[in-house]
Amino acid sequence: MPSFVFAGVGGQGIITVAIILGRAAVIEGKPVLMTELHGMAQRGGKISVEVRIGDYKSAIIPSKTADAMVAFEELEAVRNISKLKEGGMILLNRRRIHPVSLTIKQQNYPDQIVESELKKYATITVEADRTALELGNKRVANTVMVGALFSTGLLGLDEESIIAAIKESLPERHWECNLEAFEEGKKLVLEQSAKAI
């Protein structure tokens, strides 16, 4: 019964990713819960989505019990880290979106806090934005992350159901590049694991 936190900034396609996984679970007849918080801003605000696959009633994941976090932005990864269980995995898209409150004061991005916190967990870097750009469509970065998460084996879902869920969730003209992004995401994690061994 795995639980996942998705963290990032409005506009990164995080809710779509969670919906794809939810639909894949439904295809397999598994119970699933998803909850999202996105505050007041349409774009640029902090976003967190929680997904629990299994027989739960609470959509909100209790502290320190999430199996993995899929982070689309570095600072937001750290903001949601208290949800992650000890030894939990972080899939980190190397993307920094500077909070306006820092920029107004001409302050740098808080790299040091981010690095020191992420070090405490098994963090796998996924260059989702870069991979998406290489595929020629920056909007598929979120699907790269789906592929990466699938590769970890934590989802407990079949590849076919995820592919079916991608098709169910996106218009047909976007299928090809998203399926490609999914494949690339899978590879990114497999390559890293291979290096680790």
């Binding site: 505050g39 306006v100 409150s101 820092l102």
Partner: peptide, 17 residues
């Protein structure tokens, strides 16, 4: 007691670019 995280810079909601 549950975990208390580090103090982080806030990300206020913003007007879109």
């Amino acid at each position: 007691q549950t975990y208390g995280g580090p103090v982080l810079p806030n990300r206020e909601p913003v007007l879109c670019p």
